[in-house]
């Protein structure tokens, strides 16, 4: 933030047994905090948006089409929901490394690589919960949409509307998984901060890890509080947009 390089954040924290406010100097400039928040939100929101665009159509197809291997595919998605993030990070690191197929794109230690790893992590969550949501829509409601002259697209839209609460839950679960992720973004992003204090690939979670390792618990807790507030804000916004005020009067 321009003109704010001298900004200090005053913190209050607790000593054991007493409640004594302590003025402590925040060790970083505001640009550091702001850039960390920006990187975290950018990476997580883009990954969740891409994942949602991919997951909901797949969930619709999987929910209402019969084909060989459907059960296997569902199992893969369910398994992916609990896939270890470190393994995902390792796999994405290989993909974007010089030896990997995406090596020529020079994505290693970039936010794009972090988006890719979060996409891999969030997609099974969003797809799995979306699949459960669309599968719960009554077949007769879909038949009614068709019988009223709806096209396949109209029927899909009705299904999405009917399953909207479940789909919102899916997106939020995916966002929660993405923004709270540490292992894979640390591996593929590299947790990089520039000499000017601006974050390139450091996120709130990786910053918390660094501060905690350095014994800066007050800073780590502050970053944790920012993370929680961000999650709450995004949840509130998504629920507001996708919930009862989403045009279903």
């Amino acid at each position: 933030m321009a003109g704010c390089s001298d900004c200090l954040v005053r913190l209050s924290h607790f000593h054991l047994g007493t409640i004594a406010p302590l003025q402590s100097e925040f060790p970083f400039e505001w640009i550091y905090i702001r850039s960390i928040i920006e990187v975290s939100l950018y990476v997580s929101l883009v990954a969740v948006a891409l994942s949602t665009l991919l997951s909901i159509p797949v969930a619709l197809v999987l929910g209402f089409t019969e084909f060989r291997g459907k059960g296997f595919l569902r199992s893969v998605i369910t398994t992916g929901m609990g896939f270890p993030s470190v393994v995902v990070g390792l796999s994405v690191l290989f993909l974007v490394s010089n030896q990997g197929p995406l090596g020529p794109l020079d994505l290693i230690f970039t936010t794009e690589a972090m988006i890719l790893s979060q996409l891999v992590l969030a997609t099974p969550v969003i797809m799995g919960v979306s699949l459960a949501a669309v599968s719960s829509v009554d077949q007769q409601v879909r038949d009614a949409a068709f019988a009223m002259g709806g096209t396949r697209l109209d029927v899909a839209l009705v299904t999405i509307k009917e399953a909207r609460y479940g789909l919102v839950t899916a997106v939020l679960a995916g966002f929660g998984r993405a923004i709270s992720e540490i292992g894979s973004v640390l591996i593929v992003g590299g947790n990089i901060v520039g000499s000017d204090g601006e974050s390139y690939t450091r996120t709130l979670t990786t910053a918390i890890r660094v501060e905690a390792r350095n014994g800066q618990f007050d800073t780590a807790f502050l970053l944790g509080a920012i993370l929680v507030v961000l999650v709450l804000l995004v949840n509130a916004l998504v629920i507001r947009l996708g919930g009862t005020n989403g045009g279903y009067r």
Partner: peptide, 26 residues
């Protein structure tokens, strides 16, 4: 062609939006 099923199968919406659905898709 219009069709009414044994079960009403209404959409999770108001009476007005349900009644308008066939017009809406056209």
């Amino acid at each position: 062609i219009g069709m009414v099923f044994q079960d009403a199968s209404l959409f999770d919406a108001s009476v007005r939006r349900n009644a308008e659905y066939g017009l809406h898709v056209r």
